[in-house]
Structures are given as C-alpha cells and as structure tokens.
Computed example of a mutant assay.
Amino acid sequence: MRLLVDIGNTRTKYTFEQQGVLSMIQSERNEAINEKWLTSLTESVESIVIASVSEAYIIDVFISYAQQHNIELDIIKSESKRFGVTSSYQQPTTLGIDRWLTLLATNILYPDQNVLIVDAGTATTIDLLNNKGMHLGGWILPGIDILFNSLLSNTSQVLATQEHQGNISFGKSTSDGVNNACWAATLGFIEQGIKQASKEVSLDNVLLTGGNAEKVAALLNTQHRIINELVFIGMQRF
C-alpha cells in the first residue's frame, strides 16, 4: 500500500492507494504533521509519494520518518516532460507541482483532447493542455480567501465578515458586496479563461478541482466535470 501526500500551503491532503484504487481523501493542518501523526497512518504503508508547495520543514518530517522506518519515499518535482506531457515553462521546475500533476492526470483521463483545467484552492489556477500533450500555459489568481483578506488588510473602513457560500448577486451590505465580488471575480476569471482557451484550441473539456470546485461549479454555466482527486491521479503515475 502507498500513501500519497499533497502538502499545500496550509493543509496536507492524503489518500491511500492499494492495487490502483484510491481511498477517500483526507486532510490535516500542516502544523499537526509530525512523527506521531505519521505513525498513526503508516502501519501497512510500504512507500510514500509526496508533492509539496509548502515549506521544506514539513518534507523533512517525512524524510526523517521514512529513513527511520525503512519506508520508500518519492518526492515529485515538476519536469520539462514526463508521461507524454510537455511543460510550456522555460524553467519547468518553477511550475507548481500541483499544476503539473493535474496535467499528467488529465492526459491519461482524456487523451487526445483539448482540456482546460481549473484548480480552485488557495490560488485559483487555469492550465490548458492540448490534444498532443502540450501544456499551452495558464493563469494564476489569488483564491477566494486571499482576495477577501487582501482587501480587508489594505483598507481601514471596509468591514466585512467572510461567507463561504458562492454568490454573485449584488450585495446590499458591505459584507455581501465584498464576498460576492470575490466570487464574481473568480467566476469572471474562469469564464475569460474558457474564452481564451477556445481561441487557441477547439476545447473538448473543462475540468474543475480544488477545495472550492463545487462552489465554483454551482455558478458556472459552461459544461464541466469535477474531479476532486485530480492531483492524486497524477501522483499515481509515479
């Protein structure tokens, strides 16, 4: 059995893979990741696969634990080319590993298709993969929480309480005005991404993933598919 670990900016998601089947995705706060936590998870684990966009000290916890318990450890990095997918970045290692893994997953799920991938998490990212496995680039926008908090932290008289339901109606209070604008900005970003992608390719699919995927999906009129485990499907290829 393998433990697949996606270390994000604030939380770590993980799942177990056995004979190609993924268990339910779970998550933990990054500050709770320690040897005791790992011990509770790894009784039958033979290897650990890690993808991380967070600070190095969390990876160090896994490295130390794996060495002490003779568990195979694989830390995935973004590359210029792998499994038939080619990165558009001149410096491929600077492409976020979560974005790279969604590209690898999409290429195996939808071969020979032009697909736009929307990952709505801490950041909202868009990536376009063509039907030849070429990454045609993408966009990065601050996620809903960052949009909301950045406005409040840079103004003195905008007082708002964050709501976590997607809504793009015009607000009739400052809180609603700020919250709904964050969702509207995110939705507009995605819709413009779909338009731009359609100028470059004949778009076959739009995939949504990430913590806010279902809330975004409820607002999006374009046909789409939600695949919450997209990053982990990419990790399965290693």
Score class of each variant (00 low, 15 high):
Thr15Gly: 01
Phe16Ala: 01
Glu17Ala: 10
Glu17Asn: 06
Glu17Gln: 13
Gln18Thr: 13
Gln18Asn: 15
Gln19Tyr: 08
Gly20Arg: 06
Gly20His: 06
Leu22Cys: 05
Arg29Val: 01
Arg29Ser: 12
Asn30Gly: 09
Glu31Ile: 11
Glu31Tyr: 12
Ala32Thr: 05
Ala32Asn: 15
Ile33Pro: 03
Ile33Thr: 05
Asn34Glu: 05
Lys36Leu: 11
Lys36Ile: 12
Lys36Gln: 13
Leu38Ser: 04
Thr39Val: 05
Ser40Asp: 13
Ser40Lys: 14
Ser40Cys: 04
Leu41Met: 13
Thr42Asp: 01
Ser44Ala: 13
Val45His: 07
Glu46Ile: 03
Glu46Phe: 01
Glu46Thr: 12
Ile48Met: 15
Ile48Gln: 07
Val49Asp: 07
Val49Met: 08
Ala51Ile: 01
Val53Met: 01
Ser54Glu: 04
Glu55Gly: 03
Ala56Asn: 12
Ala56Met: 06
Tyr57Gly: 00
Tyr57Met: 07
Asp60Lys: 14
Asp60Asn: 14
Asp60Tyr: 02
Ile63Phe: 00
Tyr65Gly: 02
Tyr65Ile: 05
Tyr65Met: 06
Tyr65Asp: 02
Tyr65Ser: 04
Ala66Thr: 11
Ala66Lys: 05
Ala66Phe: 05
Gln68Phe: 00
Gln68Met: 07
Ile71Glu: 06
Ile71Gln: 11
Asp74Leu: 14
Asp74Gln: 15
Ile75Val: 15
Lys77Cys: 03
Lys77Glu: 14
Ser78Glu: 04
Ser78Cys: 01
Glu79Gly: 00
Glu79Gln: 15
Phe83Ser: 11
Phe83Lys: 12
Gly84Ala: 12
Gly84Leu: 12
Gly84Phe: 10
Ser87Val: 09
Ser87Asp: 10
Ser88Pro: 02
Ser88Gln: 10
Ser88Cys: 15
Tyr89Trp: 09
Tyr89Cys: 08
Gln90Asn: 11
Gln90Ala: 11
Gln90Trp: 00
Gln91Met: 09
Gln91His: 12
Pro92Trp: 02
Pro92Ala: 05
Thr93Met: 06
Thr93Asp: 10
Thr93Gly: 00
Thr94His: 13
Thr94Lys: 15
Thr94Glu: 15
Asp98Trp: 02
Asp98His: 02
Arg99Trp: 05
Thr102Lys: 00
Thr102Asp: 01
Leu103Asn: 02
Leu104Phe: 02
Ala105Glu: 07
Ala105Leu: 07
Asn107Phe: 03
Asn107Lys: 11
Asn107Glu: 11
Asn107Leu: 02
Ile108Cys: 05
Ile108Asn: 08
Leu109Thr: 02
Leu109Gly: 02
Tyr110Gln: 06
Asp112Asn: 14
Gln113Ser: 13
Gln113Ala: 12
Gln113Met: 13
Gln113Arg: 13
Gln113Gly: 03
Asn114Val: 06
Asn114Lys: 07
Leu116Glu: 08
Leu116Ala: 08
Leu116Arg: 10
Leu116Trp: 10
Ile117Leu: 08
Ile117Glu: 03
Val118Thr: 09
Ala120Thr: 09
Ala120Trp: 07
Thr122His: 08
Ala123Ile: 01
Thr125Lys: 11
Thr125Ile: 04
Asp127Tyr: 00
Asp127Val: 03
Asp127Thr: 10
Leu129Val: 09
Asn130Cys: 10
Asn130Ile: 10
Asn131Arg: 13
Met134Asp: 15
Met134Thr: 11
Met134Arg: 15
Met134Cys: 14
Leu136Val: 09
Gly137Trp: 09
Gly137Thr: 08
Gly138Thr: 04
Gly138Pro: 06
Leu141Gln: 12
Pro142Gly: 04
Pro142Asn: 07
Pro142Met: 05
